[in-house]
Design a protein around this nucleic acid. Structure first.
Lengths: 224, 224
DNA sequence: TAAAAATATTAACAATGTTAATTATATTTG
DNA sequence: CAAATATAATTAACATTGTTAATATTTTTA
């Protein structure tokens, strides 16, 4: 009975891959049972032999995307020294990831996908998404006495709300109305927040070229 | 030709009222052309004689709700002295409004409703929604030298991102997973943020009863 | 190879937004 | 007031959606 399981997992994966492809390229609006099944090479009803419904399937993509996001961000911020600058770079790079794949932002934060009854682990993954990206650097800052341990949870939460909020307003409401305005706003907002958090100690001047790597990374990405 | 216009406006309003009713009671998921038209007392196709499409109609509700929200918040925070405490109360009451009407939060911040081509004024209204609620108190704080003018835009933006972010995670992802946890988190997060913004000057102790009016207002509202 | 089990597909349903064709109503004109 | 016209409202129809039930096909087992 081992072959059965392997084959079943393989077929499930065809559907998952198809779903991921559509989410990354066209977003949730393009997701449909027939569309997914077409790409997977099966008839539409076959999907129901492997998944409870389409929401089930969609949620299975989250952990893959989170892993991909982590890789993306680590690569883009490689070489930046630990601490405040690194955290800023990580947050901005995190934003970059979702600018490149707005459909994944929808999946993580926007889409109301069925009921969340037995999806608690996925919900939790999403909630900790940015934290897990920044974790080691927050710890670095605490152990180097740059921030106080007792404030850590508040700081993490605030950075999360700010980062996701920025994306929400831009991707969902086109505020600010242009890409360049958004980039500049996200930069300033994140920098100012970290300035507040780190109490100006170790602050860098606001001359717009303080973080060339991340600045560049922003420029190198174009969204439609 | 004046009667024509009056009558047309009246009928349009039947549809708008029906749409508002559904949004407030059942949320966007319950919105449909046939549902709206039923409630308005017309056949489904009649809607298209008065509105380009259903998105057009939905967007027309935004300004009404914003006005209602403002009234709600002002009433709930009446008597709280100007300044930091008032701003906290306003933000928490703003949260209260959307806890009571999750469908309106969806409309304001979540729903991707058609293209935003000629909807710029509504987008802008949404963007300034919380600012307009807090405007006079921010000004009060600046004129009383509690915060610096040059930081004002950053502070406003941060409070907006934090407040909307809190609602997004709770209403959309059930994080934190219970109402009471959310209330306590929203309270602490908002208070801590304002602590950071106001640089601890005029801070109140974190004993959980510092703001009885707003605390009460939270308790008095129950969401399903 | 034939019967049984597992898997995949087509047919069908109800609900959706939207348009075209048709009917009912109101308004203008003789 | 009656006939012609313009306006408004409704029904019919279509394409698309998620999902289930009824079939058809393939694979496994005896």
């Amino acid at each position: 009975m081992k072959n059965k399981e392997i084959q079943e997992l393989r077929i499930k994966d065809y559907f998952i891959q198809a779903t991921k492809d559509i989410l990354k390229s066209e977003g949730i609006k393009a997701i449909s049972v027939r569309n997914i099944s077409d790409k997977a090479g099966y008839s539409y009803a076959t999907l129901y032999n492997y998944f409870k419904d389409v929401n089930d399937l969609i949620f299975l993509c989250v952990s893959d995307f989170q892993a991909e996001c982590l890789t993306f961000v680590k690569k883009q911020t490689k070489g930046i020294p630990n601490g405040r600058e690194k955290i800023k770079a990580l947050a901005l790079s995190y934003i970059n990831y979702f600018l490149e794949y707005p459909g994944i932002f929808e999946l993580f934060y926007i889409s109301r996908v069925g009921d969340f009854n037995n999806k608690q682990s996925i919900i939790s993954l999403i909630d900790k998404s940015l934290d897990s990206v920044c974790e080691s650097d927050w710890n670095y800052c605490v152990s180097h006495n740059q921030i106080e341990m007792e404030n850590l949870e508040f700081f993490k939460s605030q950075l999360k709300l700010s980062t996701v909020g920025l994306l929400l307003f831009y991707l969902n409401r086109l505020t600010p109305p242009s890409y360049s305005e958004f980039i500049s706003h996200a930069n300033k907002q994140t920098d100012d927040l970290l300035g507040l958090i780190f109490g100006k100690q170790g602050a860098v001047e606001d001359n717009g070229s303080k973080n060339p790597q991340v600045q560049n990374s922003f420029i190198s990405i174009n969204i439609k």
